[in-house]
Structure formats: C-alpha cells, structure tokens
Amino acid sequence: MSLQTQRHLVRIENESLSKSQKEFNRLTQKIEQRSVELNDLRAIYQQIQQRVQADYHPLIDQYGRLQADLVRLFDRAYTHEDITKIERKKLADLIRTMAFDLISVHEIDSLKPIYDKYKTEEFDGGTDGSDEQVPNGKRIGTDPDEEHSEMTYEQELEAAEAERQRQRANKPKSAKQLEREAKKQADVQKTTKAVRTLYMDLVKAFHPDREPDEAEKVRKTEIMHRVIAAYEKSDVLALFRLQLEFERIDQTHLEALAEDQLKYYNKILRQQAQELDDEFLALQKELATITGKATFTASSLVGFEISLNTDIAQLKRDIKQLKSDLKMLANMDILKQWLKSYR
C-alpha cells in the first residue's frame, strides 16, 4: 500500500469499477484534497490572527486609552470658570460622541458615568414638538394605543402560528409519510451500523485494558484515542485509514466491499465532504472580510500584510500625535483656541 504524506490512501483499484466504487474513489479523493486545502487555510488564518493580536490590537487599545484620557480632559475643562456657554456646548458634544464610541467599540466602561452626565444635554436643531425623535427610536406625540395595537397584532400572529404547528403535530400521518419516515430511520440505522462495524473491529484489536505488556498498552491507548476521535466525528475515511495503517484490512478487502456497504459508506463520505466544503468556504469568507477582499486568494495574504503594515505605521503616528495633543490641550488657553475651530 502506497503512502502519501504519512496518510494511507483509501482507494479501490479494480480494473472495472462499479458506479458505487467510482463514487467511493471520487469522494475519498475529494476529502483528501479538501482536507489538505483546509489545513493550509487554517494555518493562514492562524498566522493572520497571531499577527493582528500581537502587533495591531495593542496599538488599537493604546489609542483607545489615550482617547479616553482626552474625554476626561474635556470633562474637567467643562466646569472650568473660564469656559463660555458656547464652549461648554462644544465640549459636551465632543464628550458624547467620543465616549459613546469608546464605550461601544473599545468597551471602556469607566467612561459610562461621564457619558451619562452629558447624554441629556440639549442637541442642536429645534423641532416643532409634534414628531420629535428620542434615543429609543419611538416618537414623542404618537398615540400609545397604536403601539399597543401593533404589539397585540404581533402576539396574535405568534399565537396563530403556534396553533398551526400544534395542529400539524397532532394531525394523523398518512401511510406514505409513515413509510418515508420508516425508510429514513432504517437508512440512519444502517449508516450508523456501517460506521460502527469499522469502529468495533478496531476496538477489538486495540482496546488496551487486557494488554499485559506496558509498552504495548501505551501504544494501543494512543491508537484508541485516534479511533474514538474518528468515530465520534463519524469520520469513516479516518477509520478506513486506521484499518489500512494497522493492517486490519488490505486492498483486496476494499475491492470486495459489497454494494450495499458501499452505499452507506458513500452516504457518510458525501456528508463528510460537504462539511469540509462548508468549513472551507466559511473560513475563506472570513479571511476575505479580514483582508478586505471580495474573495480570498494567495495574493490576498501578501496584500493584507502590506495593508496591515501601513495601518500599524499610521496608528503609531496617530498615537504620537494624540500624546502631543493631550499635553497641549491641558493648557486652558490652547484648549479654548482649539475649540474655536471645532464645528
């Protein structure tokens, strides 16, 4: 039996293959290939995550803390005797905006008491009082009975749906429905049995409890960990690999698999291939989002590194500037001059 990257190939090699045997070979090859691709993609994802965690997030956190210090500076300045009413209004607007972002994005909860002090400050822009927006999304001046009526209507819809589901559950099933359910249940049982047959063969051969030799007991324990992990995931391909690796089956055995056995093995392999496809596409989509691309490719990683390095350099410049601003704006005359330019 040939080996490829320490993994036993599971493939039927008859000269004349049946449809089920061809499907078995196609699925095992697809799973092998997708597994390799998925491992490569996981490594890239981990590489990106480590780089972001190590080099980018600490700078973001530092920048957020400096902005929080600026909010506290504005809060102290608000009560200074030299601050005018117009300047207080500008400071309140700055504090509300900055504190809200820092609490919601950076989770700097220590700013909540400061934000609460200024969130009720009167905003610019008057209204006629008839249709004023308020923070919870409701409108002042609307009929309270209208909202109550809408909620009652929603409750009626939910109650009607619950009643339909109850009636559907209590409705007697037709003979065809019962037949379909019985067939589906039988397929599930046979599929489970197909996996369990492979599993039990390996358990009988490698269960360590009755092994008197300590070294062999350790070896069998390690093998059983692999067997149990494959069985719990219904990874039929991994179970086949283990059987081949430890010579529980050979090529002749694979070629002699009955059609009904192949049918259920193929069903499990299709599910396994679909799960790998789903994970691969989900990870690819997440990487595309992280790198800011429509789709993630090998070149996306290079572009991401360049973009990340640019962002890190800009953040370092922004942090340096913010430290300088904090020192300057601590001077009341400079702060008042700066507020004149704030709109």
Rank of each mutant, 00 (worst) to 15 (best):
D69F: 12
D69I: 07
L70G: 02
V71H: 02
L73E: 01
L73D: 01
F74M: 05
F74R: 00
D75S: 12
A77P: 02
Y78F: 12
Y78W: 08
Y78M: 13
H80K: 05
H80Y: 06
H80C: 03
E81A: 14
E81R: 13
E81S: 10
E81N: 07
D82I: 15
I86S: 15
E87T: 06
R88S: 11
K90T: 07
L91E: 06
A92W: 07
D93Q: 11
L94Y: 08
L94P: 11
I95L: 10
I95S: 01
R96Y: 08
R96L: 09
R96P: 02
R96W: 08
T97Q: 13
T97V: 09
M98S: 10
M98P: 01
A99R: 00
F100G: 04
D101G: 09
D101W: 02
L102N: 03
I103A: 02
I103G: 00
I103Q: 03
S104W: 03
S104G: 09
V105S: 12
V105R: 05
V105Y: 06
H106Y: 08
E107N: 13
E107S: 11
I108E: 00
D109S: 13
D109L: 13
D109Q: 15
D109N: 14
S110A: 14
K112I: 15
K112Y: 15
P113Y: 05
Y115P: 00
D116I: 07
Y118E: 01
T120L: 03
T120R: 07
T120V: 01
E122A: 11
D124M: 02
G125Q: 07
G125V: 07
T127C: 09
G129A: 11
S130V: 14
S130W: 09
D131R: 07
D131C: 08
D131T: 07
Q133C: 11
P135H: 04
N136F: 02
N136D: 14
G137Y: 11
G137T: 08
G137I: 05
K138I: 09
R139G: 06
R139W: 12
R139S: 08
I140W: 06
I140T: 06
G141P: 02
T142Y: 14
D143N: 14
D143T: 04
P144Q: 11
P144N: 10
P144G: 12
D145E: 15
D145I: 15
E147L: 14
E147P: 10
E147V: 10
H148R: 13
S149I: 13
T152I: 04
Y153K: 07
E154H: 03
E154I: 05
E154S: 03
E154T: 03
Q155P: 00
